[in-house]
C-alpha cells in the first residue's frame, strides 16, 4: 500500500484523486477490521455492563429487561451485526456510563483531544527538528553530546512520569509561573473576554502538551540529527560550499530542506503514538478528551462508547497516515502515485 518511488515526476490531479480514493477505499476494510477486533476482545473479557450494576434489590426480571434494552441478551454475532448496522447509519448508540448519547459524549471530548494532539505534534516536530538540526551542525561538540543524553533520556521516559514531574515542578519550584496543573479551562473561563479565554486555554495547554510532545520531540530530534548529518555529507552541500555560499545559507537552504523531507513520513508514524499517549496524559492532567473517555469506558464495559472511541482513534491514525503520504508527494516531486 502506498506510493512507489519513481524518478520520473508529474503527479497529475486525476492520478492524485484516484490515489486518494483508492486509499480511502482501502481504509474501509481496515477500519472494519479494527472495530471487529475491538468488539471481539471487549466481549471476550469477562463480565458485561450489567454485572457491574448487580444489586440485591433489583428483581431478576428488571435486570433481564436492562440486558434486553441494551441488546445483551442476543447471541454475539447478532449483537455485532446490530451494532455494525446502526453504526453505519450514523447511530453510535447510548453510553450507559455517561447517561448520554455516545455522539454527545464524543462531541464534547473530540475537540479537546484534537487540540492537545495538534499542539503536541507541533512541539514534537518544531522542537524536535530544531534540536536535531542544531546537534548535527555541531556534531561532536559538548552541546551535541549533552543534547544526545537529554534526548535519549526524554525518549526513554514514559509520558505519565514526565507529566507527574512537570506537575511537581509547576506546583513547587515553578509555582511563580502560575501554570495550571489540571483541566482545560479555569473555573472563571466563561466570564473572560475572547483574549482572556484564549490565554487561559493556552496556559492549561502548556503542561500536557509538553508532557505529551516532549518524548516524541526527543525521538524526532534523534531522527533529525541522523538525517541532517547525512544531508551535510552530500555532494550538493559540498558544491554549495564550494560555490562560496555562506555557511548559514548552505545549512538552511541545502542541508535542512533535504533533511526535512523524510520527516514528513515520520509525521504519519507519530500520529498514533501521540493519540495513544493522549490516553495516559489526559488521565494525568484531567484533560476532558477522548483518551480519558475511552479509558473510563473500557473499565465500565461501556461497549458502545469503547467501540466509537476506538473507531475514531483508528480513523485519526489512518487519516494521519494518508495525510503524511500526500504531504510527501507535495514536498518531494520525485514521488508519484499510481
Amino acid at each position: 500500500m502506498g506510493f512507489r518511488l519513481q524518478l520520473v515526476a508529474r503527479p497529475g490531479v486525476t492520478t492524485l484523486i484516484r490515489y486518494v480514493g483508492s486509499r480511502l477505499l482501502q481504509a474501509i476494510p481496515l477500519l472494519i477490521g479494527v472495530v471487529t477486533l475491538i468488539f471481539v476482545l471487549l466481549h471476550l473479557a469477562p463480565g458485561d455492563p450489567t454485572s457491574l450494576w448487580f444489586h440485591p434489590d433489583i428483581p431478576p426480571e428488571v435486570m433481564e429487561r436492562m440486558r434486553e434494552s441494551m441488546g445483551l441478551d442476543l447471541p454475539l454475532h447478532q449483537q455485532y451485526l446490530h451494532w455494525l448496522k446502526s453504526f453505519f447509519t450514523g447511530d453510535f448508540g447510548y453510553s450507559y456510563s455517561h447517561f448520554r448519547p455516545v455522539s454527545a459524549v464524543i462531541g464534547d471530548a473530540l475537540p479537546a483531544t484534537l487540540l492537545l494532539g495538534g499542539a503536541a505534534l507541533l512541539v514534537a516536530f518544531g522542537v524536535g527538528s530544531a534540536v536535531g538540526a542544531w546537534q548535527a551542525v555541531r556534531r561532536g561538540s559538548p552541546t551535541d553530546s549533552f543534547l544526545t543524553v537529554v534526548t535519549l533520556f526524554l525518549y526513554s521516559m514514559p509520558g505519565f512520569w514526565l507529566g507527574l514531574m512537570l506537575i511537581l515542578a509547576a506546583s513547587t519550584w515553578l509555582a511563580w509561573l502560575g501554570l495550571p496543573v489540571s483541566g482545560m479551562t479555569s473555573v472563571d473561563h466563561a466570564s473572560l473576554g475572547p483574549l482572556g479565554r484564549m490565554s487561559d486555554l493556552a496556559g492549561h495547554l502548556v503542561l500536557p502538551t509538553v508532557a505529551l510532545g516532549l518524548g516524541s520531540a526527543a525521538g524526532v530530534a534523534r531522527f533529525m540529527r541522523g538525517e541532517m548529518l547525512e544531508a551535510i555529507g552530500q555532494d550538493y552541500v559540498r558544491t554549495a560550499r564550494a560555490k562560496g555560499l555562506p555557511e548559514g545559507v548552505v545549512i538552511r537552504r541545502h542541508a535542512l530542506r533535504n533533511a526535512l523531507l523524510p520527516m514528513v513520513s515520520l509525521l504519519g508514524l507519530y500520529l498514533p503514538i501521540l493519540f495513544g499517549g493522549a490516553v495516559v496524559i489526559e488521565v494525568v492532567f484531567s484533560w476532558p478528551g477522548m483518551g480519558r473517555t475511552m479509558y473510563d469506558a473500557v473499565l465500565a464495559r461501556d461497549y458502545p462508547l469503547v467501540m466509537a472511541t476506538s473507531f475514531l482513534f483508528g480513523l485519526l491514525v489512518i487519516a494521519g497516515n494518508l495525510l503524511a503520504d500526500l504531504l510527501y508527494a507535495f514536498v518531494d516531486p520525485r514521488v508519484r502515485y499510481d
Partner: peptide, 20 residues
C-alpha cells in the same frame, strides 16, 4: 461552587498547593 474531577491524586494535591 465548583466540583472538579481530578482523577490523579498527585495532581489534586498539586492543584491544592497552587490554589486551583
Amino acid at each position: 461552587l465548583v466540583y472538579r474531577q481530578i482523577p490523579e491524586d498527585a495532581v489534586s494535591e498539586a492543584a491544592l498547593r497552587t490554589g486551583e
